[in-house]
């Protein structure tokens, strides 16, 4: 047995949920869902200079993120893991714990990549709801869903795109990227890359940040805010006194790859990339990371034969 919702009823269901949740439709969003839990900029502490009281920001709102595709769901599963281990990130979980993720896909898939519910298109007019967590269970108890006696056919066929295929063997990818440090491709990319950081902002699995204090004009209140940073930006690895561990674009761009495919693999056992394609789409210099990885892999395999 499965639950079915009519396509035209989805918006009514979401409307009903608005009573309880802040509902965000994230379909076709340039910025990935990380922005709701690790916002581009957020106040984390407020220090009152007169009373000398320090308070942290508190977040009460329940959020429902609707329309995540399979890649974004997988990215959220990975980001949850990153934000949980080795130690939990308070400000991320403060928002994430109160949120529900609803996926939406036309593709068939094997094991669910993440989220609380996934809507899978079964025909032009209907979606089948796959409930994955208790949180999902709670919000699906609604007259908009009809029980369907026959389970919709599982027609899962492994139709992986080329980028996905590259990511399958994250061990080889880690070895190849670590090996590639002297490869000419990094010199070529250093000439192309504008060091703008867009690839990291649109990446659902880039999560680096910096912390900055702001003081009110009347000097009464100070806010400590955390904001997205990007390891491709010039100041990222600079320390007091001015020494910079990643002075050149080449070092920074390589570091970005090194983190995603080498350090991430050694830390979590997989690449921190879900082939969503955002970094390719929005790179103003037209860098295509799938092509970069393919070239490195090809040369690596030639050498290691």
């Amino acid at each position: 047995m499965s639950l079915i919702i009519e396509k035209k009823q989805i918006k009514n269901w979401l409307k009903e949920l608005k009573k309880e949740f802040q509902v965000i439709d994230t379909r076709n969003s340039i910025l990935p869902a990380k922005q709701y839990f690790l916002p581009p900029k957020e106040d984390i502490f407020i220090f009152n200079k007169k009373t000398k009281r320090l308070t942290n920001s508190s977040y009460q709102r329940k959020t429902l993120i609707f329309g995540l595709d399979l890649n974004d769901l997988e990215a959220m599963t990975q980001l949850d893991e990153i934000m949980k281990n080795p130690q939990p990130d308070f400000f991320y979980w403060q928002k994430r714990e109160k949120s529900v993720l609803v996926g939406l896909t036309e593709e068939s898939f094997g094991p669910a990549p993440g989220g609380d519910i996934i809507f899978k298109k079964i025909n032009p007019y209907q979606y089948q709801a796959m409930i994955l967590t208790e949180k999902g269970e709670e919000i699906i108890n609604s007259p908009f869903f009809k029980k369907n006696k026959t389970r919709a056919n599982e027609d899962f066929k492994d139709k992986l795109g080329s980028f996905r295929k590259i990511l399958l063997d994250s061990e080889v990818l880690a070895d190849a990227v670590a090996w590639s440090i002297g490869h000419k491709i990094w010199d070529e990319l250093a000439k192309k890359c504008l060091s703008c950081g867009i690839c990291t902002y649109v990446c659902p699995l880039c999560y680096c940040f910096s912390v900055e204090d702001k003081v009110n004009l009347d000097n009464a209140k100070c806010v400590r805010c955390r904001q997205w940073d990007a390891c491709t930006l010039p100041h990222f690895a600079r320390i007091a006194g001015g020494h910079n561990f990643h002075k050149t674009i080449k070092e920074r761009y390589y570091n970005w790859f090194y983190h995603k495919f080498v350090r991430a693999y050694r830390e979590y056992g997989r690449s921190q990339c879900v082939a969503c394609g955002r970094c390719q789409r929005y790179c103003p210099a037209g860098i295509d990371i799938e092509k970069v990885l393919s070239e490195i892999l090809e040369d690596y395999k030639k050498v290691k034969k």
């Binding site: 130690q87 990222f236 561990f245």
Partner: peptide
């Protein structure tokens, strides 16, 4: 080693060197 760190708990990425975090 010395690095500038923003979090101290292995998240912010500023102190990464190779596959290690200076803070953790």
């Amino acid at each position: 080693l010395e690095r500038k760190m923003q979090c101290g708990i292995g998240k912010c990425q500023h102190c990464a060197t190779g596959d290690k975090y200076v803070c953790q």
